[in-house]
Design a protein around this nucleic acid. Structure first.
Lengths: 362, 362
DNA sequence: CCTGTTTCCGTAAACGTTTTCCACCATTCC
DNA sequence: GGAATGGTGGAAAACGTTTACGGAAACAGG
């Protein structure tokens, strides 16, 4: 009647089933399986046989509760479809698996509410770290919220890692893995300027995104360095997507804006711009030069292949995971206080075939 | 001395902390938070205040153990970087989040061992379902292993979902979400044939991958339907990547193979082929037509935009999740026996600008 | 042969929830 | 006014592990 478990029951086998069937205690089974305690060969053999027979796997939830458990890292991403972030995710996931860690993903779809909900969800899961991918929004309220996240996670023994965005202000317990965004833009713009371009259409991305701001800033500095006046009328903000590139270049053309090159905030934007130029009968790079940013695979698959800025996305993912793993090993040695670590990776221009000196002007 | 918890302790707050501080029992706190039992407004207010003060979140592991818990779906993917699968993942993840489910991801990197390890890991996690993405290998041993996975998961109350590959043979408890791969290839090849092409270079993909086999088969059927002899010498197998497309088209050119069109197994392969053709001074589509398969964003970002076969990847992801969710609702009603569900989604040709009738032959 | 070490293994107490009983109080109805 | 009824809240038993803690062999030394 009150049988707790019929022999051929549906639910999964428990450690107790294994123990009974092997004629040993549950503790022994646990020890055989986790292998962190000496057991006799005979015992091990007997247990393992039953484990195989029953196709038993330990319940990860119970294990976590009891203290053991595999660390888990959560990856929060705007849009899993974006090539750049997919590479970061790959880096994180790869490094995690290498250490036997698990990775959870969630996509926020650019919705701050979703982001909040997900961070809490991850907190419930007791993840070792939450890795937040992508540029940040430059709202005060948003920054405040991030700081709260960081402290919440820290208090729960977890940790926040920001990837691809500037670090949080103040003494916030979060690690930042960033790349030298502005220098990349500086170099890229310099490349165009040194080729002789002076009239450059700039498509930096969304005005409120820190990434776009940095790229714009780098470009501006390059203009200054070359003594070329920076025309605000030549910069068009918009989302980081193909459509925006297409539209922006198209309208610039229709407005009869005079430009010999376009400096796109992203390879995808560059692709859109390129298409628009072509549609208008212009050739790339003969009539107009184009450069991108990110160096995603698309960049080298376009014709002509795109000159762009290489960002070590996958590497960033690996570094991010390593940072939290180290911090975890470091253990109680350095607790609250050693916060706000900031790692910066380098970028460099990849010269391909989308840039030529400007044609003589009429 | 034997304090179980200092007031300002580091570890996360437990439900007991909340209960004590609110002066109620743990049961009440649980009830307030899960909201599946009537509680007075007063009690609710008092508890919620403490919850906010302590920034408390429930421990998901404990909750899962005790019976509650959010269902989790595991997504196993070869390479998170592949655009097609990224879209499936997006579909699964989106639909999961919509239902309040969680999604775990793991990447197998084409390594069967990793795949095995991951399936077991997911089994430990007690996931509601394991979604396996991507074409299958046509080895007997591999198929057997899949069947074992399916049964293992089923026995543990979980479920295997195969996406983008043909269903398993025999009475295996796995759901398959597939698309009409062969018909798509048939339609695509017909498009080329009806434009007048007769000499077509075929780049179906890896010979041992079921996806590639289906695409090749569809093409072959179209040739037959048009009464065009199918030349084995015109098909070149190889991986689904840009490099292969580039190499294969390049060598075909160097071998002075006579072709007026290329039928690529994938948009990315098509992109590679296109680049190679251009490098050899050929124009697309004036000199050579090219078609792809998958309709990933790249297809419409290339110049000329690629005519290709649209595959509803994201939809497939959603359908996959719906299938497991339904099965879960269905509950004990239909248990083992209603297995081997097989859902097939349609494909269609998207005509863009990479095809023209062949030029008159010399 | 007795004692002191090892080496294993079993017992039982956590881990943080949910949930099933039960008990209590306030209504409401005869 | 007493009893039946509902709405609420608490105590305690799960859930499936891990990990002290303790005990029983097995072995060595005297």
């Amino acid at each position: 009647m009150s049988q707790r478990k019929a022999p051929g029951d549906a639910g999964r086998a428990t450690i107790r089933d294994v123990a009974e069937r092997a004629g040993v205690s549950v503790a022994s089974v646990s020890r055989v399986l986790s292998g962190n305690y000496p057991v006799s060969d005979d015992l091990r053999r007997r247990v393992m046989k039953v484990v195989r027979d029953l196709d038993y796997v330990t319940n990860a939830h119970a294990r976590s509760l009891a203290g053991g458990g595999t660390p888990t890292v959560a990856i929060l991403i705007n849009n899993i479809t974006g090539a750049a972030f997919a590479h970061v995710a790959k880096g994180v996931e790869g490094a995690a698996t290498l250490r036997g860690w698990l990775s959870l993903v969630g996509t926020t779809g650019d919705d701050p509410e979703r982001e909040l909900a997900l961070v809490n969800l991850m907190r419930q899961q007791g993840v070792a770290a939450v890795v937040l991918l992508g540029g940040a929004y430059d709202y005060d309220e948003y920054q405040l919220r991030m700081a709260r996240f960081a402290r919440s996670l820290d208090a729960a023994g977890s940790h926040l890692v920001l990837v691809g965005r500037p670090p949080l202000e103040g003494d916030v317990p979060a690690t930042t893995v960033d790349y030298d965004n502005e220098s990349g833009a500086y170099a890229m713009a310099s490349h165009l300027l040194s080729a002789g371009h002076r009239d450059i259409l700039v498509l930096p991305g969304p005005a409120e995104l820190t990434t776009a701001q940095g790229r714009l800033q780098g470009a501006r500095r390059a203009f200054e360095a070359y003594g070329v006046p920076f025309e605000p009328g030549m910069v068009r903000h918009g989302p980081y997507d193909y459509e925006h590139g297409y539209e922006a270049a198209g309208t610039a053309l229709r407005e009869k804006l005079d430009f010999t090159a376009v400096l796109a905030g992203t390879d995808v934007v560059a692709a859109g711009a390129m298409q628009a130029l072509r549609a208008a009968g212009l050739r790339v790079p003969e009539d107009v030069s184009i450069v991108g940013y990110d160096d995603i695979p698309l960049a080298s698959q376009l014709t002509p292949q795109l000159t762009t800025v290489h960002v070590p996305y996958e590497e960033m993912g690996r570094v991010a995971l390593r940072a939290v793993a180290d911090r975890r090993e470091g253990g109680a040695g350095r607790r609250k206080g050693t916060d706000g670590e900031h790692l910066v990776l380098g970028t460099h221009v990849v010269v391909r075939h989308s840039v030529r000196p400007p044609r003589r002007r009429g």
